[in-house]
Design a protein around this nucleic acid. Structure first.
Lengths: 340, 340
DNA sequence: CTGAAAGCGCTTACAG
DNA sequence: CTGAAAGCGCTTACAG
């Protein structure tokens, strides 16, 4: 491959002039610039990324650390990843996708070796062992998901607490007085997925203050267990008229369940989910839902990260914790309750 | 961060000795090696990836080019990606995930700049504009998916033709004489997804030679269109007793459809799908299926790629086109036909 | 067994 | 406006 030296020779200038002509970082005579560009074009010159990284201390690569747990519902993940990779590319960055089980080791590796200019962490746990490593790293970091301690990092997440309240409020306003909330499986909470209880506790609190009975249970992440669970819940609380679902697998399973029971939505049961529009479309979920906006969250995290990477001033700004407000997208799956 | 110079000074040796002690590429006295390792440990030394890449012409990063088309069923994609990233890591490589819409540009960028030591291409089209670029690149490449022209590249794919025959054979043996095959949407074929007609044509050929009537149709990739389509097909050919599905979205939609019709599988309809076990588990699909083994394909592609990257001898070996034999995983969704 | 030096391919102060 | 030179942090022949 051609080097900057080849381009310089071809254009009859020095390597520094060739470099400046290409970068535009200092004034170059029109004639010389033309010759350099022509030479670069002719030789199909592309700078060597390693050499440039060494000289500039910038790789133009962002790290994306995602964990895939055996027992998790994977389809929802892809949207977050695409939000990150696409936005990164728009801003001129490539993305190193790291799916290693040992997140601490992985993070140390990519930051210590200076492979990346910044890091986005996904699947944030309440006590996330990667966070101290990220805080100590020379590169800035952004989180998609809310940990217990946000200090020293930019954090982006859906406002799950508000989401819980919005769901309860909406059904309360329609006249419902007994609801069921199906959350993610308990092991997600044990692993530190705080968003589960953030929504749950907020929903419970709001229900209590409104005088609504809310049965909050943990779900399953896989079929057919989650289908059986839903049947069991609807059997157990026959007076419940509304179902809130903070669990993708449960949402995907619900259509069969209501069908099997011969129930119609919303006539026999009002339903509100929490997932992305993309997910809803893929599975054709006919429920009103709180948009979880995975692509937007990934995109926001990258934008802030790149700001800090590129501007020393931005680097020194206070860290932010930004919540996306839950948007309730109506699909007509809620109505006033009917006594059964 | 500490450099090799810091380590050398701390250990009281030259930089070259420090480097050799760390790499083990030449004999080092026990005493010196100990001092160097201790110094590296004390300073938390990690080599700078850019500097190493510049010196060795190796980045220890693989490129993974994947395309996400608006109208595609995304959930199946994640498994291929994980097959690649996990195997790459096992072999000591990180993965640059490139999802850019302009695959040609993206490929040129990562290869010309020497960001990667090799490239895995996914979503291969019959006439794939990226292939000439990849063949001309200095790095080796591997494909997951079969293009029209395999020259100069290692290719890995499911044997879709054999899959088509296996499906037809199986139901023929059980006594079925009229079948429906639902493929991916037509636009997937138009975009160059040869696997669609590879399975289809092979199934049609086998059916013809067995005297089986096979209605082969293109499907939809989204709900609810795909559900409506399935109903339409079952209405149109009431004498068909078996359904073959080469379309993830259709497979995911089928349970509701049979339920809505009050049909039982396999009593009223025999079904065979083509997807991954992971996909089957996520959606709890109760059908026998031909395993598409995305993680295995991704893994095979990476292994071959890394062989070529690491060994000049392997680099010169003839290129391979490797097909995974379709494995029919029984889930009890087929039985002799019953006249309806 | 160890060290001094060259070189990988860039960028960017320093001079003019 | 342009060039010669230093330097980024490694690895690896070349000498001894």
């Amino acid at each position: 491959m051609a080097t900057i030296g080849d381009v310089a020779r071809e254009a009859g200038v020095s390597r520094s002039t060739a470099s400046y002509a290409l970068s535009g970082k200092r004034p170059i005579s029109e004639e010389v610039r033309r010759r350099v560009l022509a030479a670069a074009e002719a030789l199909a010159y592309t700078p060597n990324a390693g050499a440039r990284a060494l000289a500039t201390a910038r790789t133009e690569v962002l790290g994306l650390l995602a964990q895939f747990h055996e027992d998790e519902f994977a389809p929802a993940m892809m949207q977050y990843i695409l939000g990150v990779t696409n936005t990164a590319r728009d801003l001129g960055y490539d993305t190193l996708l790291v799916t290693e089980a040992d997140g601490v080791r992985a993070l140390r590796r990519v930051t210590d070796s200076r492979m990346v200019d910044g890091v986005v962490l996904m699947n944030i746990a309440q006590e996330d062992a990667r966070l101290p490593v990220l805080r100590a790293a020379p590169q800035p970091g952004a989180l998609v998901g809310l940990p217990g301690d946000c200090s020293g990092l930019d954090v982006f997440d859906l406002d799950f607490e508000e989401a819980g309240r919005v769901m309860v409020d909406h059904l309360h306003r329609l006249g419902h007085r007994e609801l069921i909330l199906v959350s993610q499986p308990e092991h997600v909470v044990e692993r530190g997925g705080a968003y589960v209880w953030r929504l749950r506790d907020a929903a419970l609190g709001r229900a209590r203050s409104l005088g609504v009975t809310l049965h909050a249970v943990y779900g399953e992440s896989r079929q057919p267990a989650v289908g059986r669970l839903l049947h069991g819940l609807l059997d157990a609380w026959p007076a419940a008229t509304g179902l809130l679902i903070n669990n993708e697998a449960a949402a995907a399973a619900l259509p069969s369940v209501t069908y099997e029971r011969g129930w119609r939505v919303p006539e026999d049961l009002s339903v509100i989910g929490r997932y992305s529009a993309e997910f809803a479309a893929t599975f054709s979920l006919p429920y009103s839902f709180v948009e979880s906006a995975p692509d937007r969250l990934g995109s926001m995290a990258v934008r802030q990260l790149v700001r800090r990477v590129e501007s020393p001033a931005a680097r020194r700004e206070p860290y932010v914790v930004r919540f996306i407000s839950p948007e309730l997208v109506s699909r007509g799956s809620t109505a006033p309750p009917r006594s059964r």
